[in-house]
C-alpha cells in the first residue's frame, strides 16, 4: 500500500503483492463512491416510469420533465437568488473577519471565532429549527431574507477558512516591504494584499456558493413554498413521485458539480485549499 512505483521496481514479490492489494482496495473504495452516480446515470435514461434494473428501453424524456417541472425551475431560480446573496455576503463578512483574525488581537476575538465556526459542528436541523423559532418569535415570516441569513451563517466558516489559509500563506513581509516603500495601510491593502488574495477569495466564494445552493436540511425548516430551494423541491418530489425525473436532475447536478470542482482544482489547487497538500 506504499509508493506503487517503488514497489513495482522492487524485485520482492511480497511487496509487489502488497502494492497490488493496496491499490485494489483503493479502487474498490473509488467504485463505492462512484457507484450511486453511475446507477443514477443509467436510470435517468430508463424509459419506464417505475425505477427498475436493467432498463428495458431508453429515453431522455425524464430530462425534459426535469426541465419543465415548475417546482424545479422555481427552486432553481430561488436557489440562485439565495446563493448569490448568501455567498457574496458571506464572502465580505468572512474575508474581513479572517483578515482581522490573522492580523489583529482584539477583545472577544476567541468568542467571536467560536460562535462563527460553530455551524461546522452544530447539526443543520438545529440551526434550521433555531432560525425558524427565531422568526416566529420576532413575528417574521419565512421570507428570502430569513433563508439568506441562515445560509450566510452556515457557509461563513468555509469562507473564513479559505481566506484565512490564503492569508496565512501570504508572506507578511510583502506588506512590510510595501510600507517601507511608502505605501499607507489602505494602499498596501489594495495594491499588495488584495491582489494576492484573489484566488483564496474566489475559492471561498465558490465553496460558499456550492454549499449554499445544495444546502437541504436547514433550508427545509426555513423555506416556505415561495422560497423553496431546488434540494427542497427535489425532496418533496421524491415523496410524491417514483419516476426517474429526479435521476435525470441528479445527473445534471453531478456533472455540473464535478466540472466546477475540476475547474477549481485546475486554477486554484483544491488540495491546498482543503489543506490535504503540504504547502511549500
Amino acid at each position: 500500500m506504499s509508493d506503487p512505483r517503488k514497489r513495482l521496481i522492487s524485485a520482492k514479490a511480497g511487496e509487489r503483492l502488497l502494492a497490488i492489494a493496496g491499490w485494489t482496495v483503493v479502487w474498490l473504495v473509488v467504485a463505492f463512491i462512484i457507484l450511486p452516480a453511475v446507477v443514477v446515470g443509467i436510470s435517468a435514461f430508463n424509459d419506464r416510469a417505475i425505477l427498475s434494473f436493467p432498463p428495458q428501453a431508453w429515453s431522455t424524456r425524464w430530462f425534459a420533465r426535469a426541465f419543465s417541472y415548475r417546482d424545479f425551475s422555481e427552486g432553481f431560480r430561488n436557489g440562485l437568488i439565495i446563493t448569490a446573496f448568501a455567498s457574496s455576503i458571506a464572502l465580505v463578512v468572512g474575508a474581513g473577519f479572517a483578515f482581522a483574525l490573522d492580523r489583529y488581537s482584539f477583545r472577544g476575538k476567541m468568542a467571536l471565532e467560536a460562535v462563527l465556526t460553530s455551524p461546522l459542528v452544530i447539526p443543520h436541523f438545529t440551526i434550521g429549527l433555531g432560525f425558524l423559532i427565531l422568526a416566529a418569535q420576532i413575528h417574521a415570516t419565512r421570507t428570502f431574507a430569513l433563508v439568506i441569513v441562515c445560509h450566510v451563517v452556515l457557509v461563513l466558516p468555509f469562507v473564513m477558512r479559505s481566506v484565512y489559509v490564503s492569508l496565512r500563506n501570504l508572506d507578511s513581509r510583502l506588506e512590510l516591504a510595501a510600507a517601507s516603500l511608502g505605501a499607507r495601510p489602505g494602499r498596501a491593502l489594495f495594491t499588495v494584499t488584495l491582489p494576492l488574495l484573489i484566488p483564496g477569495l474566489f475559492s471561498g466564494w465558490l465553496f460558499a456558493a456550492i454549499l449554499s445552493f445544495n444546502e437541504f436540511t436547514a433550508s427545509l425548516f426555513v423555506t416556505a413554498q415561495a422560497t423553496q430551494t431546488l434540494p427542497v423541491a427535489m425532496y418533496n418530489y421524491v415523496r410524491e413521485y417514483a419516476d426517474p425525473t429526479l435521476a435525470a436532475l441528479s445527473v445534471i447536478y453531478i456533472v455540473v458539480t464535478a466540472l466546477l470542482l475540476t475547474i477549481a482544482n485546475a486554477f486554484l489547487g483544491l488540495g491546498k485549499v482543503l489543506n490535504v497538500e503540504h504547502v511549500r
Binding site: 513581509r173 512590510l176 516591504a177 510600507a179 517601507s180 511608502g182 499607507r184 498596501a188
Partner: peptide, 12 residues
C-alpha cells in the same frame, strides 16, 4: 509610520 520613514529595506 514606516511608510513615512524613507528607509529602504531588503528582506531576507
Amino acid at each position: 509610520a514606516p511608510y513615512d520613514r524613507e528607509i529602504g529595506v531588503v528582506f531576507q
